[in-house]
């Protein structure tokens, strides 16, 4: 975890390189600056573009899928990839490409919902614990420690056992697992920002806690949280696939990548394409979220940037 409190990055020479006048920088959000820097990192930019394509596929899944994901055609069963079915067909003659496209919708929706839940709940807990300290910090973070001590997959399985299977519950299960991660990252970041001069100055002129938190602490503590969001999305997509693979997540006949892998496993020696294409889809999505997360860390966290670039030498 990011144990050490991260200092708020001062406007760095690289920020000026991005062509943003310093007078605007103070007033405007830093996202344009971040995007500009990110675009100069070819790996992160490529990952971002691929992700954008995957998200668009997920949003327009029903329009883009060549045929219905559950259209059964017995005479077409277990066909190898061909022009008519680029990814082949499964044991019920369903088109794998259509199922992979619709699976994108299912997997990403669950991933985004899970991370949104963890982000909101975890960051709120971390924000309160870091800002107020003392007993608030003790109570909240000890509870987070307990949650963190549970093996992630088992915690998710236990939540699913309580709530029953299905996409919404899978998102909740994965979200619960990531709450302590966001709480820790946010707390560490808030601890670094809390004592900054601008926060004390604002407090001394009588700003309320709410104003301090929303206007000063949270925006400046945000960079590590943004990085964590991208990395957590990668793991959420993986976790959804794993839970669906175990039969606890998305239920048939809905096409989820993990579920398709589980279904394809039985035919692996006669029809490799059943498990191959959903696996590639999971791998590609997770890889892009991870690469984007790395790129964001390079841009938003200057200490890591020097380290990763070999600047420590």
């Amino acid at each position: 975890m990011t144990g050490a409190p991260l200092p708020e990055p001062a406007p760095s020479p690289t920020a000026t390189d991005a062509g943003v006048p310093s007078t605007q920088r103070a007033a405007r959000p830093r996202w344009r600056e971040t995007l500009g820097l990110l675009a100069r990192n070819p790996t992160a930019a490529a990952a971002g573009l691929v992700l954008l394509a995957i998200v668009l596929i997920a949003v327009f899944d029903e329009t883009l899928a060549p045929s219905g994901p559950n259209e059964i055609s017995v005479e077409d069963r277990l066909q190898a990839p061909s022009l008519a079915h680029p990814f082949g067909t499964d044991d019920l003659g369903r088109d794998i490409l259509s199922r992979v496209v619709l699976g994108a919708g299912v997997s990403l929706r669950v991933g985004f919902l899970a991370v949104a839940f963890a982000l909101v709940v975890g960051s709120l807990i971390g924000l309160l614990a870091g800002f107020y300290g003392r007993w608030v910090d003790d109570v909240l973070m000890r509870f987070m420690d307990v949650l963190f001590a549970f093996p992630a997959v088992l915690l998710a399985i236990a939540v699913l056992a309580v709530r029953g299977p299905g996409a919404g519950n899978t998102a909740l299960a994965i979200g619960v697992v990531y709450v302590p991660v966001f709480a820790r990252v946010t707390r560490a970041s808030v601890l670094g920002v809390r004592e900054e001069v601008y926060v004390r100055a604002s407090r001394s002129v009588g700003a309320s806690d709410f104003r301090l938190l929303t206007r000063h602490v949270l925006p400046n503590a945000a960079p590590p949280i943004i990085v964590q969001t991208s990395i957590s999305l990668a793991f959420a997509v993986l976790a959804e696939a794993a839970l669906s693979f175990l039969g606890l997540g998305t239920q048939p006949p809905n096409p989820s990548w993990g579920l398709m892998l589980a279904e394809g496993r039985g035919f692996i020696d006669i029809a490799w394409w059943l498990a191959f294409f959903p696996g590639i889809a999971i791998f590609l999505t997770v890889l892009c979220f991870n690469l984007l997360g790395d790129g964001l860390r390079d841009v938003l966290d200057p200490r890591q940037r020097t380290l990763m670039a070999g600047g420590g030498r």
């Binding site: 993986l238 696939a241 693979f245 993990g258 892998l261 696996g279 791998f283």
Partner: peptide, 9 residues
């Protein structure tokens, strides 16, 4: 990034 169960298969 590779799913463990896919690598296993």
């Amino acid at each position: 990034s590779v799913p463990e169960f896919w690598m296993a298969i």
